[in-house]
Design a protein around this nucleic acid. Sequence first.
DNA 1: GAGCACTGC
Length: 680
Amino acid sequence: MPHDPDPPPAKRFKPGSPFFRLNKKPGMLLPRKENASVPVDVQRKHLPIYQAKSQLINRLRQLDGAVLIGETGSGKTTQIPQYLYEAGIGRQGIIAITQPRRVAAISLAGRVAEEKKTQLGKLVGYTVRFEDMTSSETKLKFMTDGMLLREAIGDPLLLRYSVVVLDEAHERTVHTDVLFGVVKSAQRKRREQSKFPMKVIVMSATMDVDLFSQYFNKAPVLYLEGRQHPIQIFNTKQPQSDYLQAALVSIFQIHQEASPSQDILVFLTGQEEIEALARTCRDISKHLPETCCPMMVIPLYASLPPAQQLRVFQAAPKGTRKVVLSTNIAETSITIPGIKYVIDTGMVKAKKYNPDSGLEVLAVQRVSKAQAWQRTGRAGREESGLCYRLYTEDEFENFINMTVPEIQRCNLASVLLQLLALQVPDVLNFDFMSKPSSEAIYTAVEQLDLLGAVDRKDEHISLTPLGKKMASFPLEPSYAKTILLSPDFSCTEEVLTIVSLLSVDSVLYNPPARREEVHTVRRKFISSEGDHMTLLNIYRAFKNVGGNKEWCRENFVNSRNMALVSEVRAQLREICLKLGMTLQSSRTDMGNVRRCLAHGLFTNAAELQPDGSYVALDTHQPVAIHPSSVLFQAKPAYVIFNELLHTSKCYMRDLCLVDADWLHDAAPEYFRRKLRAAKS
DNA sequence: GAGCACTGC
């Protein structure tokens, strides 16, 4: 075992108070165990929420809005919609229940359809991107929050809906936050115009709900008991200089003391860290005394192939301990059964946004208190648990209370475009629950203005006809613009492919251990014109073999992401047709495709300097070509790039060779002073 | 010559 500079394990921690997720409130209910062999209608009655049913219905019938607090496991998400429907509340329209994630929307709909003993897609259905399982009969509709937002563009008053339930509101995704404002204004306008009323129910797992209640006109807060079991919390006595070392020591301290059937979940920050720690744990566990049980180490992060992700749900063989090393994917998206111990490093990798430079940086940082509680809660899902926090109580007190909502740390260009499409009268003063900084809003307006999406008259901002078309694409504004420009260059088919490729996760596998092999097979696709054209070549080859899985494996192509590219492409193509665009292919003429990209993505341009370095023309930020680019060895005078990645340097990723003239023609005013070799 | 948490339309 590596040398441990900190105190010996047994002395490292001191116990804190047991953690109960909820304080007791009047009208609360006792948790009970679920039993899979019991029929669903009986199970429904065993849910904690059932005993509050009539009370809940009476309150909700009277209220326009309510904030509902309840743990996962309280049954609120599956039961509330059914209670409303069964009580005849909101029968004039559809009851919508929004979720931040697709899988959640789909599985919840399945569960409720089963409870209602009806076929999915009839009374109960769901709508997510690429999949609509609803019909004219559907009254209970589970959907992603992004999907309801899309629908609102065509129907800002949401007149199909009688009730909107915003679930998992505490997660504060961009989509949920925008929906808050959209739903609130729709509710008010319907009242003003004497349309039939809309009920808004906000559901959250955290106790910190004053903000929600205040925002929704002081809506009453209703509490529901969940099934949280007590969790004993331990903090370190001293701050830890090395959280990985501290995690390692804690894992083996628990491993040597606890019964083998008790599993451990460790929260870490990323793939590399997790894989490294997994190797160390496996090595050490081989050399432990006979008295110690075997250890099964399971890494968990989003980019893991689905088959490997499923391993966390399998129980370890009898007498073996399961140790799950996870990113924050296990905080919300994936619930792992059998976890008795949680080890929280208190660290997370998250995106930060600098509104001045427009740069997003991915950085390891401290979690918020709310996040720490969420992690702790993962230890008490089935029975009482223990949580080891690798930080002191004082350190914890200094954590921020809530994670800063995503809307305050992202580029707002697409959000603003969407708000304008929703006919929000004054976007600069949109009623956000947590208003983003005025710098961030201003930067976004500037971006949209440059793209020709908005008209500015004093303080009033409106959508141009181009902007209106741009908003109909589920894409970053600059990508939408590029597609809309493509008919001028007779290359819409190619641009659709490229934009689709850029808007999903990477379609390329790059296993470091097989670098030479990857290099060899990829050579045949490489275009000297850059990464966009190389990706286009790969997509064309993929289509030529009909998406053959074997071909994907041989060529280190991620077939799952490639399939997603096809789906995205089909959706975008459909929107083009609806807008009446003619879809032409440039076939072998890549020059036109590059011209088109230069015209659409000119804000992401960089210029070679006399000293051989690059400067981003928009911000004058020094940038470098990422070593993964096919242009890494080349020194093109001008490139456009897909994104900037700030790590050891500021790297451009996914580059395309362009001419200075094209950039100049795309935005003469903008480039007048920016280009070295500016056209006279 | 580097390495990217997690979602979503």
